[in-house]
Nucleic acid binder design. Structure first.
Lengths: 214, 214
DNA sequence: CGCATCTTTGAAACTTATCAATCAGAGTGG
DNA sequence: CCACTCTGATTGATAAGTTTCAAAGATGCG
């Protein structure tokens, strides 16, 4: 079964037996989302959680036409689990930012697995612990850092081998800044020779400087 | 045993058997903290978590002399559980803001209980889910709200029967503002006749207006 | 009652947002 | 292969919101 393979790729679910996976799968629902389509809104009651099998999703809040990205998930990942756990409404929006294949797991199937398998519960808790950590760091960034250091740490966080593909608009939404400000900070980093830019690819030229600015 | 009673007051731990509680207690360590004393720092490895039996604690981040409160806990509550779970360093500072009695539970005892009792695990997860929700809302507030609406929603959140004791400095630290700004916003709310102030007690005069400003 | 602490208020400075215009690059159709 | 358009990035000028610094005013505690 193709679905089972996808589920096994999720670290959280890999220890499940085939029987357990089948049970989850039989209750689950796979759906395809185009870039820009909404997966859930804060109006929706959380009747289950979502496995991102393919694609990219952003979780975000809005208020007065402003937007703040809480987190971006790339495959493989899952999201909506906290709200699904409490069974209340989602606290935020979820939207595909790339064409995405997403499996929906209803609350019941999910909870029953958790009850059966203490190992999964522990893994699950460690995932939630990591989410908490992530949000704590986001709060620190939003509240204590200047625009320049936000951008510097964004680059450090997302870079791989000193390179990253940079979308000004997306970074702005994550960092709680405007695209103009992000662009300006980028120029500053260029003039400080901390980075180089070509098209939308950024190369880190001076890691230490970036870390000092962070 | 006095300690057991205190533990039973924590909703999370109430379903534990006496044997389980004894096991936890025997490994635990109770300590008294004065207002202002540090409980843990981001340097400390999380070897366990803390039960707040009596008093009040703030969890916060600092950077360049600035401070952002992540959360304030009043008895009965527990904290440090996410970091303790992963076993890494704490992501933030914890400091008593009132004289506090705190029980420390080592990681091992805690994990073994979780493994034994799936019911506790579930409760635990629901607590963590709530923490995630709380942080999500904090992020929204920090990033999307104006100073005035931060203060308005702070009042709404903390008021009881239209009243609350307000400490400007504490509110500022929670809201990511300076005390001066908070004070100014309070004056504005007074002049709008949304609230009244006497000493450090605030009375809500116009709930609807506050909600509109929120 | 007096001292220390917290709050309020004012003026100036700073950071970031906003608005507007220009520029660069990718893809499209002639 | 070259305009052409569309989208996203950059830059500049200005505005708004919040912080900072300083001083004066309340408040509470010993």
């Amino acid at each position: 079964m193709q679905g089972r393979e996808a589920l096994k790729k999720i670290p959280l679910l890999s220890p499940l037996t085939d029987a357990q996976l089948s049970k989850i799968l039989s209750a689950s629902l796979e759906k395809l989302y185009n870039a820009g389509s909404v997966i859930f809104t804060p109006e929706d009651r959380a009747e289950g959680f979502y496995i991102l099998k393919e694609g990219k999703v952003k979780i975000f809040k809005t208020q007065r036409g402003k937007e703040q990205i809480i987190r971006i998930f790339s495959e493989p990942a899952f999201f909506g689990e906290a709200a699904s756990f409490t069974g209340c409404k989602f606290p935020a929006w979820a939207e595909a930012i790339e064409k995405s294949k997403i499996i929906f797991i209803p609350r019941k199937a999910f909870i029953s697995i958790l009850k059966e398998d203490p190992d999964i519960s522990l893994k699950f808790m460690s995932v939630m612990a990591n989410r908490l950590l992530y949000l704590t760091n986001l709060i620190e960034s939003l509240s204590l850092k200047s625009a320049l250091s936000k951008v510097a740490s964004y680059i450090l966080r997302n870079q791989k081998n000193g390179k990253l593909i940079f979308k000004t608009n997306l970074a702005a939404l994550e960092l709680g800044l405007t695209k103009e400000t992000v662009s300006r900070m980028l120029s500053k980093l260029k003039s400080l020779e901390a980075i180089e830019k070509e098209g939308n690819t950024i190369k880190v030229k001076n890691f230490q400087l970036l870390r000092e600015l962070e």
